[in-house]
Design a protein around this nucleic acid. Structure first.
Lengths: 213, 213
DNA sequence: AAAATTAGGTTGAACGTTCATTCAATAGCA
DNA sequence: TGCTATTGAATGAACGTTCAACCTAATTTT
């Protein structure tokens, strides 16, 4: 869950439990979430194994017990965040009532509201962008994610055009919307005082409206 | 110059000249450009002092003679690239003939043409984004750059609105355009096969047109 | 004009630190 | 008695930085 990013630094220190059986995968999940918090807090470059261990309150050796390497942990973390964002968006779409236009408006709304439109969440997402270019694995996941996102968006845009009885270039419109959202995420993350979430959403909705005229 | 990024790996190896007097600052410039090439080629994380030295064909110690630290070198490199992008855009605007609309179209055009819209150039720019969040110095430069860019854009948008005799929300329109351009840079850089430069420019021009209706 | 001196660019080995990874040892659960 | 989770010290590689020594051009002295 993206919400788990909300800085829940564990307070209790001291000796840790050894050999305690937990639900399978919960430790993995905890490590992944600690990794996200580290990237959000210190940036990607300063996200070391030591820091992740401290954040997750585990010993150094445990990470390589649950993950074959740091690269794999990073890849899993990216995958998790991508799935979180996708799930959050899907949830918003399914909760919307009305036609294609309502679904599109729901997508725009969820993109500029917590937990997605949150400085820490976007910082992690942004931190991964520069790594996507150099990591084979991450690049593959990224392309698949964005391709499917644009495809889904184009489908809804096409449906909205039918609703309104106008013709649009759906692929181009989908490209426009994804780029605009990414750009607003980026710029707000790098300077949250430059504009408000409301302004970002309004700008996005204005462009959406402009696409159908 | 941004164009210097075009991978001009020096071929000649062997012993290097010692103590040769050169124009002041040319070595600094060469190191900065080598840094850009490294970020473009290997990514920000893999841009080490050793690699920069190899790329610039100098010894390891020389960097700390021209720059007080790696951080300063990185900051200088960011500054250089930011100035290059700004200068390239300004050039395009000044070369344009006509009114505010022509100037805006020139800005859009130059944003999606070489040397700016180039995989290596954008990779460096993208590589810096995640660092901007964690470096005090870079963050300051970034905010100043984007604030002035949006301000200038809003001015031209206002002028174009006057030309057409319509009223627009110029600050919001400027925010929209910068975010859209950044988003298209980002997405094309991470997946150049997702869409063509022409499609990106067309999408941007369509949004520009939509802002005035 | 020749020689000596100064100044600053350049080198590469050395240093201390930090990093990811490995592994023998340990603890609890089945 | 296994089996798996967990620890923490050890390892070696890679990192940024420092520094004494070197080299050449420019400047000053003789």
């Amino acid at each position: 869950m993206v919400g788990a990013l909300k800085s829940v630094r564990s307070a209790k220190k001291g000796p840790r439990a050894r050999g305690v059986r937990e639900e399978p995968g919960v430790r993995r999940q905890a490590i992944v979430e600690a990794t996200m918090r580290c990237i959000a807090e210190y940036g990607y470059a300063a996200t070391t194994i030591d820091r992740i261990c401290e954040e997750a309150d585990i010993s150094r050796g445990l990470i390589n017990h649950h993950f074959s390497s740091k690269d794999e942990l990073i890849a899993q973390t990216y995958k998790q965040l991508a799935e979180d964002l996708k799930a959050e968006t899907r949830r918003a779409v399914q909760a919307s009532e009305g036609g294609a236009e309502a679904r599109l408006r729901a997508i725009v709304r969820v993109s500029f509201q917590a937990p997605i439109f949150d400085e820490r969440t976007l910082a992690v997402w942004l931190g991964f962008w520069s790594v996507v270019r150099t990591s084979e694995v991450l690049r593959g996941m990224h392309r698949e994610l964005y391709a499917s996102y644009r495809r889904a968006l184009a489908g809804i845009l096409e449906a909205m055009a039918r609703e309104r009885g106008v013709a649009i270039d759906a692929p181009r419109a989908a490209l426009t919307l994804t780029a605009l959202i990414d750009g607003l995420w980026l710029e707000w993350c790098l300077d949250p005082q430059a504009f408000s979430p409301e302004a970002a959403e309004a700008a996005c909705l204005a462009v959406l409206e402009g696409l159908f005229r």
